[in-house]
């Protein structure tokens, strides 16, 4: 295999070929996770403190410049990673747990339960994610916590659909019939034998939803419905800088790039995982 082949096909580790997308996506995400974890040490300044004049251009002292209050944009972007990554994680967790539970019960029991649950899911799918999230925010009020709930709720239908479709296949397997015959309770069958077999598609979907959640969360904060000042949140930072984009481009651009890189990384990772873990795609 030539170096060029390696670049195209990726690196083989333990018998598995890691695609370039996987490597790039994982690397970018790893950097952001590290920055988020080490934010207090990595950020040169307090993200909430005025450390210089307003709207100072990027310089050796302030790599990403300063914002309208003279706060260091670099420090705020790093601290913003904490907010955005936590937002993505919790939103995905909410959607995955509730959506999977709904899909599991629906697919396992079928009948009326399935019909009612799927019509609710259909109704939710009829709304774009951002609209659904807006409805939730309107009901709960603007805050970063409520954004997590709103974004999480908006992802429930996709998890429910995905898990249900997997469960419909799994429940017909012989080992499920065998478990029923020996009297294993339904809850145990679902949790021990059905759910684990949906893990791979769940993992792929969660990876993709993670980036999507960060993107929607940033969008809500941009609209003033998410994180509130002075929280260093990327969407809010983009919003604050948009009025002076022509003369202080750095205020919006760097947090915008942060959103871009994280979402791109999760998409690359999600696609790569799908290719690696889905036997149908792998055989192509």
């Amino acid at each position: 295999m030539t170096a060029a082949d390696t670049a195209v096909r990726g690196i083989t580790v333990g018998g598995r070929t890691l695609s370039p997308g996987f490597i790039v996506g994982t690397s970018i995400l790893a950097v952001w996770v590290l920055l988020a974890l080490l934010a207090p040490a990595a950020a040169p300044h307090d993200p909430l403190a005025t450390v210089s004049g307003a709207r100072e251009a990027p310089s050796p002292d302030f790599w990403f410049g300063t914002d309208r209050l003279g706060r260091d944009v670099f420090s705020r972007v790093i601290h913003g990673a904490r907010v955005s990554l936590v937002l993505g994680f919790i939103s995905v967790a909410i959607g995955a747990v509730l959506g999977s539970a709904l899909g599991l019960v629906s697919g396992y029991y079928r009948g009326a339960v399935d019909t009612v649950a799927m019509r609710i899911v259909d109704a939710m799918l009829a709304f774009p994610d951002i609209l659904l999230a807006l409805v939730v925010i309107a009901a709960l009020g603007p805050s970063i916590t409520n954004v997590m709930v709103a974004v999480g709720v908006s992802t429930i239908p996709r998890y429910a659909r995905l898990v249900r479709s997997s469960v419909l296949t799994i429940r017909e397997q012989d080992y499920i019939d065998a478990a029923r015959l020996v009297g294993v309770p339904d809850v145990k069958i679902m949790l021990r034998h059905v759910l684990p077999n949906t893990a791979i598609p769940l993992l792929v979907l969660s990876t993709l939803e993670f980036g999507q959640a960060i993107s929607i969360g940033a969008g809500l904060s941009f609209l003033g419905l998410g994180a509130q000042p002075p929280t260093p949140e990327w969407g809010l930072m983009v919003a604050v800088g948009r009025d002076v984009l022509g003369r202080a481009w750095w205020i919006s651009t760097f947090p915008g790039l942060a959103i871009f890189t994280v979402v791109m990384a999760t998409n690359l990772l999600g696609d790569s995982l799908q290719e690696m873990l889905d036997p149908r795609l792998k055989s192509r």
Partner: peptide, 8 residues
């Protein structure tokens, strides 16, 4: 922005 400056 004035509110933010006061916050700070």
């Amino acid at each position: 922005e004035m509110g933010e400056a006061i916050q700070a």
